[in-house]
Amino acid sequence: MRKRWWKILGVALVFYTLIGGLLMEAPRLAILNETIRAMHFHVPMWFGMIIMLTASVVYSIRYLKTGNLKYDTYAIELVNTSILFGLLGLATGMIWAHYTWGAAWSGDPKQNGSAIGLLIYFAYILLRNSIVDSQQKAKISSVYNIFAYATLIPLLFILPRLTDSLHPGNGGNPGFNAYELDGRLRMIFYPAVIGWTLIGVWLTELRIRLSIIKTKIDE
């Protein structure tokens, strides 16, 4: 992880997304029109969040298996960055929804689901703060992290499919599902997902290093 190339790649891809996403030609779809450009900034937040939460669960499992506190630090910092991404995803979504759906909060199942998801991880942080002993804290919060992830998956991936969503591509809305995702969009969207995720990983790595140094100083 000390190598430099992926950080440069992440910055380059985000810059490419900024320029390409805002200036390059986008397909015209009914209702969406130019707001389709929000996709390059809103959707990668959720991709990044899910990827990092999954990584966090993997580290929690590794912690429970090995008892190495390093993995617990990885898990909590990944959750912290995921919460940042989640808040940004919610904010960008609300701005977009304000103009497209007419209201910032429309009770869309995906919107509700992501809000509940954030509540779960706020509770996770609260749980960590209420336990003093660091081994105990790591163990109990790893258990909660894994358990929360197991209930988050149906919330984000099954519940929205039981009802119609207002999101583009669901319930007869024009949008970018498998065959509609235009080549021009794809050229920016996939690099955007990779770029934002790399930036998130970089952020997490910095915070992990910071917290390891802090614990060393405390000792």
């Binding site: 509940i116 998801g117 509540l119 779960i120 509770a123 609260l126 749980l127 209420s130 336990i131 003093v132 105990q136 109990i140 258990v143 909660y144 358990f147 929360a148 209930t151 149906p154 919330l155 519940l159």
Partner: peptide, 27 residues
């Protein structure tokens, strides 16, 4: 399970509600 988790942490009753509400929601 949440009750088991909370029994290991202090200030239990308030924590229990906060921890269990969001994960009860999907069901």
């Amino acid at each position: 399970l949440v009750s088991g988790i909370v029994s290991k942490a202090n200030n239990s009753t308030a924590l229990l509600a906060v921890l269990s509400f969001p994960i009860l929601l999907p069901i």
